[in-house]
Amino acid sequence: MQGFQFPPTGFGVGSQPDDSEKVEWMPMPSGMATYEPRLPEIDDVEAAAIPPALEVLGRAAEACARIATEGGVEVVTLDHLAPAARVIVAQTMGEGEVSAKIEGAPPLRAQESVFAGVWVVSEGGAERLEIGRAPAAFFARAFDPIEHAAGPFAPTSNAVVNAPGIVTELFDAASRRKAGDAAHVVNLTLLPHTPEDLDHIAAALGKGAAEILSRGYGNCRVSATALHNVWFVRFYNSMDTLILDSIEVTDLPEVVCAAAEDLEDSAERLREVMDAIR
Results as ranks from 00 to 15, higher is better:
residue 1 M to R: 10
residue 2 Q to Y: 12
residue 5 Q to M: 14
residue 7 P to A: 14
residue 8 P to M: 08
residue 11 F to H: 15
residue 14 G to V: 08
residue 15 S to W: 07
residue 15 S to I: 09
residue 16 Q to Y: 13
residue 16 Q to N: 10
residue 17 P to Y: 09
residue 18 D to E: 12
residue 19 D to F: 06
residue 22 K to W: 11
residue 25 W to H: 08
residue 25 W to G: 03
residue 26 M to K: 10
residue 30 S to T: 08
residue 35 Y to N: 08
residue 38 R to S: 02
residue 38 R to M: 04
residue 39 L to Q: 14
residue 41 E to W: 10
residue 42 I to N: 11
residue 44 D to L: 10
residue 45 V to K: 15
residue 46 E to L: 13
residue 52 P to H: 06
residue 53 A to C: 08
residue 54 L to E: 04
residue 56 V to P: 01
residue 59 R to I: 07
residue 60 A to F: 00
residue 69 T to Q: 07
residue 72 G to S: 11
residue 76 V to E: 02
residue 80 H to F: 06
residue 80 H to V: 02
residue 81 L to E: 10
residue 84 A to Y: 07
residue 90 A to I: 03
residue 91 Q to I: 04
residue 94 G to P: 04
residue 94 G to T: 02
residue 96 G to E: 00
residue 96 G to Q: 00
residue 97 E to I: 15
residue 98 V to W: 04
residue 99 S to C: 09
residue 100 A to M: 03
residue 105 A to Y: 13
residue 106 P to L: 03
residue 108 L to I: 15
residue 109 R to W: 10
residue 111 Q to N: 14
residue 111 Q to F: 05
residue 112 E to W: 09
residue 114 V to T: 09
residue 115 F to E: 05
residue 116 A to I: 01
residue 120 V to W: 02
residue 120 V to C: 01
residue 121 V to G: 01
residue 127 E to H: 05
residue 130 E to Y: 05
residue 136 A to G: 12
residue 136 A to L: 15
residue 137 A to Q: 09
residue 138 F to Y: 15
residue 140 A to N: 05
residue 141 R to S: 04
residue 142 A to P: 01
residue 142 A to I: 01
residue 143 F to D: 00
residue 147 E to T: 05
residue 149 A to D: 02
residue 151 G to W: 05
residue 152 P to S: 13
residue 154 A to F: 03
residue 155 P to G: 07
residue 156 T to L: 04
residue 156 T to C: 04
residue 157 S to E: 12
residue 158 N to C: 04
residue 163 A to R: 00
residue 163 A to Q: 00
residue 164 P to A: 10
residue 165 G to I: 02
residue 171 F to S: 02
residue 172 D to K: 12
residue 176 R to I: 12
residue 177 R to H: 05
residue 179 A to V: 08
residue 180 G to Q: 12
residue 184 H to I: 10
residue 184 H to C: 10
residue 185 V to G: 07
residue 186 V to T: 03
residue 189 T to V: 08
residue 189 T to W: 06
residue 190 L to H: 14
residue 194 T to C: 11
residue 195 P to K: 12
residue 196 E to W: 02
residue 196 E to N: 04
residue 197 D to R: 02
residue 197 D to T: 11
residue 198 L to W: 03
residue 200 H to F: 07
residue 201 I to D: 03
residue 203 A to Q: 15
residue 204 A to L: 05
residue 204 A to M: 11
residue 206 G to H: 02
residue 207 K to R: 15
residue 207 K to S: 13
residue 211 E to K: 03
residue 212 I to K: 02
residue 213 L to H: 13
residue 216 G to Y: 10
residue 217 Y to Q: 01
residue 217 Y to L: 05
residue 218 G to K: 00
residue 219 N to K: 06
residue 220 C to V: 12
residue 222 V to Q: 09
residue 224 A to P: 07
residue 226 A to M: 11
residue 227 L to T: 01
residue 228 H to C: 08
residue 230 V to K: 00
residue 230 V to C: 13
residue 234 R to H: 09
residue 239 M to Q: 15
residue 240 D to M: 14
residue 241 T to V: 06
residue 242 L to I: 09
residue 246 S to N: 11
residue 248 E to W: 13
residue 250 T to D: 11
residue 251 D to F: 06
residue 257 C to Y: 02
residue 259 A to I: 08
residue 264 E to K: 11
residue 264 E to V: 07
residue 264 E to W: 06
residue 265 D to S: 12
residue 265 D to T: 08
residue 266 S to H: 11
residue 270 L to D: 00
residue 270 L to E: 03
residue 272 E to L: 10
residue 275 D to Q: 15
residue 277 I to D: 02
residue 277 I to M: 12
